[in-house]
Design a protein around this nucleic acid. Structure first.
Lengths: 208, 208
DNA sequence: CCTCATGTAGACAGGTCTGTCTACACTGTC
DNA sequence: GACAGTGTAGACAGACCTGTCTACATGAGG
């Protein structure tokens, strides 16, 4: 079943152990320490593979970085959508109509509270890449685009300015994520600020 | 007049050319390319000093990084306050009362439009530092604190929730700055989103 | 049987990084 | 005139970086 020597057509859906271990390790180290701070040697050692194996799967660090971002995008979006919809499911019916953005706040709280939280991987990567960030910036922009769509799904399809509101909420989430990176006290303050912004956005006289 | 051999008491207020050149160069390169991507050698070459001179002024790169952040903080805050107050001066009287946060949008537009704009130096530095960011994160948090104060100064002192609103606007600005880093199209979108957020914040019925 | 993809183990090249070192020159004050 | 502070010029050490290389092992499909 795995045995198909070389299958052209739809690209590799067969997960190769070594490749997977490399990617998993890279994901962890890149996110925690930063990309430039993480050497290939370290990834190789931690993933338990050899250089040849590594370079056969990823011809350069740049390729690995892109694979990292792609994987991160898929995984994070899945997590985020799940967090949004479980928070939404927990809302009372009335609040769901009058304050539809509250799940964003809940998701942010959960995100910032993760033990290894270190901000948005895409923003961090672009920040680190500096002037040479152009290609990566496109990936980051697309990621934010999808975040916006996930948030927009909380709003009734008939809502006026649906996309605009969702986009504004995305920016608010980014701003909060940046500040949440500065420590625990900052994270708490960031959540407060995010609540203010989401409240204001979701306005209509919504009161506690 | 400069000649006082060694003056104890109030520490050096005399700006030494070489030191200043180093700092200026570091500021430029650190911001544009990132900190890790910028080697000491490059700074030395570009500043036109030698290694000994450099290391006499800054015993380590870490010291230079802190000096960079301090300098950047002072310079940027001055720029930002000036941008806010000139935008505010240009507002019609009525708007100034009803939409006091509009100058933040104007300042953001000016900021994102700068030729060398590359996001918030503090956020970028923390993002780059990764797990080892703890000391720098404090500096960044303090910076954001001052930004909030500068924004709060736009609001009437009697306004209810003045600090909260200013803080929310600060987060919004951060979110916009992050996204503005992703390219020109993203910068335009970030300004739109920021406008939505500031509008929503400003239109809140903050009653006494 | 034999080829080929995948894997292991580790040496190596060539570059860049931070930071130290020696040796010398200029200037103003004591 | 001695001294202390600041500057220049560039070699050097030791670490780490990315990426290439040789040599060998294994297992499955032609």
């Amino acid at each position: 079943m795995v045995g198909m020597t070389s299958d052209p057509g739809t690209a590799a859906s067969a997960p190769i152990p070594a490749r997977d271990r490399i990617l998993r390790t890279a994901q962890d180290l890149f996110y925690r320490q930063g990309i430039r701070a993480t050497g290939i040697d370290r990834i190789i050692a931690e993933a338990g593979v050899t250089k040849v194996t590594f370079y056969r799967h990823f011809p350069s660090k740049d390729v690995l970085i892109r694979a990292y971002l792609e994987r991160r995008h898929v995984a994070w979006m899945a997590w985020f959508r799940a967090a949004l919809s479980s928070a939404r499911a927990a809302q009372p019916e009335a609040e769901r109509r009058e304050a539809p953005l509250v799940p964003v706040l809940d998701a942010a709280r959960a995100w910032f509270g993760l033990a290894d939280f270190r901000g948005c991987a895409f923003a961090n990567t672009v920040a680190e890449a500096g002037e040479a960030a152009l290609p990566l910036a496109g990936i980051a922009a697309q990621h934010k685009h999808e975040v916006r769509d996930a948030i927009a799904a909380l709003l009734p399809p008939t809502a006026r300015g649906r996309a605009e509101i969702a986009w504004a909420a995305t920016l608010a989430l980014d701003g909060a994520a940046v500040n949440a990176q500065f420590g625990e006290a900052s994270a708490a303050a960031a959540l407060d600020g995010l609540r203010s912004l989401l409240d204001a956005l979701g306005s209509r006289p919504s009161l506690p």
